[in-house]
Simulated scan of single mutants.
Amino acid sequence: MHNEKHMRPIPYGRQNITESDIQAVVETLQSDFLTQGPKVAEFELAFARYVGARYAVAVSNGTAALHLCAMALGVNENSRVITTPITFVASANCVRYCGGTVEFADIDPATALIDIGQVRRMLEGKPKGYYSGIIPVDFAGNPVNLEVLRALADEHGLWIIEDAAHAPGGFFVDSQGERQFCGNGRYADMAIFSFHPVKHIATSEGGMVTTNDEELYRKLLLYRTHGITRDPAFMEENHGGWYMEMQALGYNYRIPDMLCALGITQLARADEGMARRREIAKVYDEAFAGAAGIEVLGTNPSAITESGETGHAYHLYVIQVADRKGLYNFLREHNIFAQVHYIPAHTMPYYRSLGYKKGDFPKAERYYEACLSLPMYPTLTNEEQQYVIEKVKGFCKA
């Protein structure tokens, strides 16, 4: 039996900072650049290579990444964009920042991913051009099948921003049997990632946009830094070496070199972290298989290879139980800090003020009533995981 008094608190997610991470940050602190220096480009290059995209633009956080994507695609007050209510609100807010209208599509209860069937019905119910784009979310690390979504988007003239904040290293298998990694730009116009501490790659705060489109890439670079360019090739006039041009209304969404130095060393361990996450998920899967009263959120079938390997990136491990509040409180009493992801966006007071109401998306609301994210991070020990399993099962049996 575990001695609970000596058990350290077990959160749902936790960063892993090593000596080499610390060293990389210290070296950057001692270098010539704290911001807009060489580490930014180095991190971008390494990340683009990691996901298999042509271009990557590092920014201050995942929300800034979403906002820049919406700007680069020209979202404005005439734009209508479809997204999922089961996500962090930033996936929807980025459309509102640009004055656009957000419309939600309900989820597939098996995976909690956006229901592509419902998206199709929404599109077919309106004239072409009514909707501008779609923001699918690789929720919990579970990849959306973007090949299917792309075909639908092309049919209706939509762009796609893939919110892959939960899924660096995740993949789905396309109709040719090829692995399509989240953010590789093959099907989405752009993808975004987040480097918040609980994510796969932690830089404390930080984000990334990936794309294969050079024109969008140029816009992202411009909007990231106040709409200013220093590149003579893109200037209207040039007064000399000091000259710069503000060509659009951009933002200061830059990321410091220190955080990029941390990102580079974190990225070097990404595969190892992913393997461990999948190992942890497998142990949970086996422990909860057939356990009465515990339902494990399913993996998108297109994210499973023929040999049974998973492309799920497991940012979160989600179960559903009848007495979610009871289990949440019980686990906290035993030093296990499970979390709920997410409160449906359309039920938030802000979105209710725009006309949404409870009852609009019953599947998302039912999912929310029962969902709980269990501890899932590479440094979770086998002993800690067994302790979590024992407590969850004990409560659900009672």
Rank of each mutant, 00 (worst) to 15 (best):
H2S: 14
P9I: 13
Q23E: 15
A24N: 06
L34P: 00
G37I: 02
G37H: 04
P38R: 11
A41P: 02
E44Q: 15
G52L: 10
A53P: 10
G62Y: 02
G62V: 07
G62A: 06
T63F: 13
G74F: 03
V81R: 00
I82F: 03
P85W: 03
I86E: 11
T87S: 15
C94M: 14
V95G: 03
A105P: 01
D108Y: 11
A112P: 01
R121Y: 00
G133R: 00
F139R: 13
N142E: 06
D154Q: 08
E162V: 00
E162N: 14
P168D: 03
P168M: 02
G183P: 07
D189E: 13
I192E: 09
F193I: 04
F195N: 08
P197W: 01
V198E: 12
K199F: 11
E205M: 11
T211C: 10
R218L: 13
K219N: 11
L220H: 06
L221C: 14
L222D: 06
G227K: 08
I228F: 04
F234E: 14
G240T: 10
M244Y: 12
Q247G: 08
Q247A: 06
Y253D: 12
M258V: 13
C260L: 02
L262K: 09
M274W: 03
A275V: 13
R277G: 02
E286K: 14
A289L: 13
I294C: 04
T299M: 09
S302P: 00
I304K: 09
S307E: 15
G308I: 07
G308D: 08
H315W: 10
F330N: 04
R332E: 11
E333H: 08
I336W: 05
Q339E: 13
V340R: 12
V340C: 07
H341D: 12
P344H: 07
H346V: 01
S353F: 06
L354P: 01
G355A: 08
K358N: 12
L372M: 09
L380W: 04
N382C: 06
E384V: 01
Q385G: 08
Y387K: 06
V392T: 09
